[in-house]
Design a protein around this nucleic acid. Sequence first.
DNA 1: GCACATTCTTGAATGATTCCAGAAAAGGTG
DNA 2: CACCTTTTCTGGAATCATTCAAGAATGTGC
Lengths: 155, 155
Amino acid sequence: MPTLTDPVAQLREAGLRVTRPRLAVIDALGRQPHADVDSIADAARAELGTVSTQAIYDVLKAFTAVGLVRRIEPAGSPARFELRVGDNHHHVVCRSCGAIADVDCAHGSAPCLTASNDHGFSIDEAEVTYWGTCPDCAATPAHESSILIREEPHA
Amino acid sequence: MPTLTDPVAQLREAGLRVTRPRLAVIDALGRQPHADVDSIADAARAELGTVSTQAIYDVLKAFTAVGLVRRIEPAGSPARFELRVGDNHHHVVCRSCGAIADVDCAHGSAPCLTASNDHGFSIDEAEVTYWGTCPDCAATPAHESSILIREEPHA
DNA sequence: GCACATTCTTGAATGATTCCAGAAAAGGTG
DNA sequence: CACCTTTTCTGGAATCATTCAAGAATGTGC
């Protein structure tokens, strides 16, 4: 087995054309697990020289459509994307810097998928987001965190 | 006891001034559990005649800050607000029309709050979002849903 | 290698949300 | 009850993420 399922093969299997921007995006996501569009675009540009932001959006949309990547959208953050799909895992999001980490489901594959009262909805997915503080931000005295996504932008 | 904790008293207790727009927002939220800013603004205008969108945002921000309302942001939808706070409950979101319903926690008050591996994060909240199809959309043959937020806008 | 469909580029539009400065209103005090 | 300070509301513009559109470039199957 290759390093991690040959990207070219992945694209072909998904019925998608193999283009430079697409490979760059896969590569970027492989390196940065929960990157937002901007980071992915930066990474892709570092690799290819020039890629339009639009292309990144298109690529990500195509990937999401065929299930190659999963789009996650923690409240208050721009959308982020990850390659891990299929295994129902969840995320911890840092309230102060926006960092995201993966969390495997504690009770098997579909933990809380059973709602107490589904109001007649037919539920097909349970998405769990844990909110807290990442080790880095916990260590820092509540100011000057690494990224700062939504507080005191002037500091 | 009043219908549901006198709004005026609620505001006073929260240390907020009692203003017409604020009462209108509380009223609107009492009637529409998971309204977005636009709906709230409409409801408030129906009641007061004129209110700036800005005022609605300010009011909601103030309410959120003191914990009077909770802000929820399902991926792909504008932010929504609800009065129910304090009881850790979750939401079911309809993939086709965006409808939201409350779901009480099946296993007591803090169900999945225990992540299998917290990566060093100190977690303070677990937010669960169930995705599925609401009864209305399930009944409809997959087209012409009530609101249609994000699929096949041309249909 | 060719033709065709798909994908990328450029540039602009949209929608939600926020920032700003000034005008108005609410509450507490004398 | 009038005054003053603080907070809130108005109106308009700015910002950010994302999407739309039209044409040029590229990948794929034959």
